[in-house]
Design a protein around this nucleic acid. Structure first.
Lengths: 135, 135
DNA sequence: CTGCATCCACGAAGATACTG
DNA sequence: CAGTATCTTCGTGGATGCAG
């Protein structure tokens, strides 16, 4: 079962917000320059964008095309492998949009519950009662 | 367009390796105890598991059931909302398994290319030639 | 415009210990 | 067994500067 480690490593590498956001961006706009990506992905730093793009390129998910002009013109696009991942990524993004409200609601409920459980502090179904002991 | 920020926040929260691995684990084994999850998810620390489970609970993706016995017996399972996410998560894991080899291959190719580009250092299609200038 | 290196700060995450 | 808190460490990631 050591072979599974590779899949695990790949999951950890790709299950990362910048990776996801870049793939999603290139899904909507097939060819984007470095600066174009920066505009579309809010709050991504120069460094993280470059770093993540290098990883995606190395993993064969993104292709980098340099046009030899000055100033440099570099385009990024998904490879066929990248597009196969895009399907899942798109679905994932759609899920968040669909269920955003439910999650928000769950959070409110959880927070409300948490706050009432702090104050009253009332005795409840004592876990230490003899009928509940096992060991 | 401030509403989009919520989806973005949710993506960042869920696109995290521990979240994914926990959801996947609960997809394979619907009811798991804390210790059961630790066994199934390799190299997860006590702390990160607890922390991520609290988040998943708060987000309404995981339900926590405490059986009042001693020692405590706590079970975790996906909520309906969690199961709806499971579909995508499962697909994502399947993708990594299916394309692991291709990624490995792309990495080798990339690394090989990178190393040969270091040594020879040969003059190539000068980007500074007049016909390439724009500004 | 793009890319890489450096420096630095902050938060994430591990180890440990203690409560219920 | 499960959970939380504390402490410390380590890496991520931001800011900046420089080069091509």
């Amino acid at each position: 079962m050591r072979a599974n480690g590779l899949a695990r490593e790949l999951i950890e590498r790709i299950a990362d917000k910048w990776t996801l956001l870049i793939v999603a961006a290139l899904g909507e706009e097939p060819k984007l320059r470095f600066s174009g990506l920066r505009e579309r992905i809010e709050r991504v730093s120069h460094k993280m964008l470059a770093q993540t793009l290098r990883q995606l390129e190395r993993d064969g998910l993104v292709m980098r095309t340099v046009h030899p002009v000055v100033p440099p013109h570099v385009e990024y696009q998904l490879t066929p492998l990248g597009r196969s991942l895009l399907v899942t990524v798109t679905e994932f993004c759609a899920w968040t949009r669909r269920h955003m409200a439910e999650v928000e609601q769950a959070r409110s409920a959880y927070d409300a519950r948490a706050s009432v459980e702090d104050a009253p502090e009332r005795a409840e179904s004592s876990p230490l009662a003899p009928e509940n002991l096992r060991g």
